[in-house]
Simulated assay, not measured.
Amino acid sequence: MEKLKKRWGIESNFQIVVIFIVFGVTGSCAAKLAAPAADLIGLDKEQLSGWIYWPIRILLIFPIYQVLLVFFGWLFGQFQFFWNFEKKMLKRMGLGFLFN
């Protein structure tokens, strides 16, 4: 636990618990919101092959997750941690130009 606190620049165990809760809530909500998002863009599980539907739906989860991560981080009082986490992750994916 101490290694994680040092790596993330966190001082308390409570902060780690809050961060884990934010990750969990964000993942669950992003997965849940992917279904209405798929419906919104016209993806229908009944009309498409599973080989097409599921990869597209998983790709939909990614941007939803990014937005929700910062939102829930703010809601739980950890905005700065998750904003920095988000920028770092997107820079590693080659999308750092979004923050310049």
Rank of each mutant, 00 (worst) to 15 (best):
residue 2 E to A: 11
residue 2 E to D: 10
residue 3 K to P: 02
residue 4 L to Y: 08
residue 4 L to E: 08
residue 4 L to Q: 06
residue 4 L to H: 04
residue 7 R to G: 01
residue 9 G to Y: 08
residue 9 G to E: 01
residue 10 I to C: 06
residue 10 I to Q: 04
residue 10 I to S: 02
residue 11 E to W: 04
residue 11 E to G: 07
residue 12 S to R: 07
residue 13 N to L: 10
residue 15 Q to A: 08
residue 16 I to K: 01
residue 17 V to Y: 12
residue 17 V to K: 12
residue 18 V to W: 04
residue 19 I to K: 01
residue 20 F to S: 06
residue 21 I to N: 05
residue 21 I to R: 10
residue 22 V to W: 03
residue 23 F to K: 01
residue 23 F to L: 15
residue 24 G to M: 09
residue 25 V to A: 02
residue 26 T to M: 05
residue 27 G to L: 01
residue 27 G to C: 14
residue 27 G to E: 03
residue 28 S to F: 15
residue 29 C to N: 06
residue 30 A to S: 11
residue 30 A to D: 10
residue 31 A to V: 13
residue 31 A to K: 06
residue 32 K to I: 10
residue 33 L to F: 11
residue 34 A to K: 00
residue 35 A to N: 00
residue 35 A to L: 01
residue 36 P to N: 03
residue 38 A to R: 09
residue 38 A to L: 03
residue 38 A to I: 07
residue 38 A to Q: 06
residue 39 D to E: 10
residue 39 D to P: 00
residue 40 L to W: 08
residue 40 L to A: 14
residue 41 I to W: 00
residue 41 I to D: 02
residue 43 L to D: 00
residue 44 D to N: 09
residue 45 K to H: 07
residue 46 E to I: 00
residue 48 L to M: 15
residue 48 L to K: 02
residue 48 L to F: 15
residue 48 L to D: 04
residue 49 S to H: 02
residue 49 S to K: 00
residue 50 G to D: 12
residue 50 G to E: 07
residue 50 G to Q: 04
residue 50 G to S: 09
residue 51 W to Y: 09
residue 51 W to H: 03
residue 52 I to L: 15
residue 53 Y to R: 02
residue 53 Y to S: 03
residue 55 P to L: 05
residue 56 I to S: 10
residue 57 R to S: 02
residue 57 R to E: 11
residue 58 I to C: 06
residue 59 L to H: 08
residue 60 L to F: 08
residue 60 L to K: 05
residue 60 L to V: 09
residue 60 L to R: 06
residue 60 L to G: 09
residue 61 I to R: 13
residue 61 I to Y: 06
residue 62 F to I: 14
residue 62 F to R: 07
residue 63 P to T: 09
residue 63 P to C: 10
residue 63 P to R: 07
residue 63 P to N: 11
residue 64 I to V: 04
residue 65 Y to F: 13
residue 66 Q to M: 08
residue 66 Q to Y: 04
residue 66 Q to A: 11
residue 66 Q to W: 12
residue 67 V to F: 14
residue 67 V to D: 07
residue 68 L to V: 12
residue 68 L to F: 09
residue 69 L to A: 13
residue 70 V to R: 03
residue 70 V to W: 12
residue 71 F to C: 12
residue 71 F to E: 07
residue 71 F to S: 13
residue 71 F to H: 09
residue 72 F to P: 05
residue 72 F to A: 04
residue 72 F to R: 00
residue 72 F to S: 03
residue 72 F to K: 01
residue 73 G to Q: 03
residue 73 G to A: 05
residue 73 G to E: 04
residue 73 G to M: 09
residue 74 W to G: 08
residue 74 W to C: 06
residue 74 W to T: 13
residue 75 L to M: 15
residue 77 G to K: 02
residue 78 Q to M: 06
residue 78 Q to V: 03
residue 80 Q to G: 01
residue 81 F to D: 00
residue 81 F to E: 01
residue 81 F to L: 12
residue 82 F to I: 04
residue 83 W to P: 00
residue 83 W to K: 05
residue 84 N to S: 15
residue 85 F to L: 15
residue 85 F to C: 01
residue 87 K to L: 04
residue 87 K to H: 08
residue 88 K to M: 07
residue 90 L to Q: 14
residue 92 R to G: 09
residue 93 M to F: 15
residue 93 M to H: 15
residue 94 G to L: 09
residue 95 L to G: 10
residue 95 L to R: 15
residue 96 G to S: 06
residue 97 F to E: 05
residue 97 F to N: 08
residue 97 F to A: 05
residue 98 L to Q: 05
residue 98 L to W: 13
residue 98 L to V: 14
residue 100 N to V: 13
residue 100 N to M: 15
residue 100 N to S: 12
